[in-house]
Simulated scan of single mutants.
Amino acid sequence: MTLSAIFAAVGVRGFLHAHRLGSPDSVGLDEDSPVVLASVVKVPLAYEFARQVAAGLLDPADRVHVSAADRLGGTGSAGFADDVSYSLRDAALLALSVSDNTAADLLFDRVGVDNVRSLLAELGLTRTTVLGAPRDVLRTIIEDTDAGRPLRALDPLRTSATTPREMTALLSALWADEAAASVREWMSAQVSWHRLTAGFPPEVAVAGKTGTMPGIRNEIGVATYPDGAEYAVAVFTTGGGETLRRPDIDRAIGEAARTAVEQLRS
């Protein structure tokens, strides 16, 4: 089945880019189209955090405090009932492993939104934009909902956005950077195995980060085969917005990722 047919079978539009690390070989489907980052934004955030730690600009053991005013609701400390504190490196772990929005907010406060933008510019990712932290995107949702207008958060031209090709370029840089070893470990600890990871056999290790909003399901990551070959994959979908729970779309993301990588391997 073709990549476009995999997505069409579950009623969504798919955008994909797969690239073998260390090689010019790649496979794509609308790979230069703008797409909404959603929680995938936490990958460049964690990357910039790791770079600042390596440069001695941040102490990973410094602690942040989560109060009621910080909690957005959702996974991790974002949904806690009580106040808690943790280190900056644990904030990064929470942001990538369980997509904790509050941990990401607090990390953005220390790392700086402008510094994340500078990292993207340094890497030449000129089509990747970061509106701000998760709380900033949530603010636009509240404003647009109250005003009864279309959500900016679902429009890649008006919110944090990227392209699949730029995300595999980000992953390529991240996997080649010794200062980013911790980021690769945190991505390997992600608890969501229902998209990219589910598409590959168990002997293939997958480190990734999902992103989810109404009608938007994403994941970027690197699949490492037993022979040592590594493949950066970025998959984004739009459609199927009637419910957040669509396991058929999740499976299609994994199937499309595996199909693209198999094309590269052949």
Rank of each mutant, 00 (worst) to 15 (best):
A81L: 15
T259F: 08
V98P: 01
L94W: 05
D100Q: 05
R245K: 04
G148E: 08
S172E: 15
R117G: 11
E143K: 04
G11L: 08
A161V: 09
V130A: 02
L57C: 03
F236I: 12
L171G: 05
M187E: 12
T224K: 01
A260W: 00
E230C: 15
I220P: 01
L45N: 03
A234S: 14
I220C: 05
G73L: 11
A68F: 08
T129C: 01
N115L: 12
G211E: 11
T212D: 14
L16S: 02
L57E: 15
A54W: 01
G22F: 03
T212Y: 05
S97N: 07
F200P: 04
D109E: 15
A256R: 02
R251G: 14
V27N: 02
R195N: 11
D250E: 15
G79C: 12
L264G: 05
L93C: 11
A38V: 10
G74M: 12
A78G: 10
S39Q: 04
A133K: 07
V40H: 00
A180C: 15
D62P: 03
G221K: 03
S188N: 11
A223Y: 07
D248P: 06
P24V: 09
A18H: 05
A68L: 14
A133E: 11
T210W: 00
K209F: 00
A8T: 10
H19M: 09
V233I: 15
S188K: 03
I142Q: 08
P214Q: 14
L120T: 06
W186E: 10
I220Y: 01
A223P: 06
G79E: 12
A9G: 13
R158Q: 13
D32Q: 08
A169I: 10
R89G: 02
D227N: 09
E166V: 13
D109R: 09
A229T: 15
A252N: 06
L106E: 05
I216H: 05
L157W: 01
R217S: 13
V43M: 07
E255K: 06
P247D: 12
R251D: 13
T259L: 11
A153V: 13
L29Y: 07
S87G: 07
V191K: 04
R63M: 13
L94T: 02
L93I: 07
T168K: 02
R246Y: 09
P202M: 03
G199R: 01
A223W: 06
W175T: 07
A55H: 02
R165I: 09
P202R: 05
V261D: 09
R265V: 10
R184P: 11
A69H: 09
E178Y: 00
L3Y: 00
A176C: 03
I253R: 02
A68I: 08
A180R: 01
L131G: 04
H65P: 03
G112V: 13
R165D: 11
V137M: 13
S97M: 11
A180F: 07
W186N: 02
A176N: 09
G211S: 08
A95P: 04
W193R: 12
A9V: 06
D155G: 03
A153T: 10
L88I: 08
V36P: 01
L119T: 15
A55I: 06
L94N: 11
G56Q: 06
D62A: 15
L16F: 08
W175K: 01
V113R: 14
R184Q: 14
V66Y: 11
L94M: 14
G28R: 06
N218F: 00
G211T: 12
A38M: 14
P60T: 10
A169G: 02
I141L: 12
E185W: 07
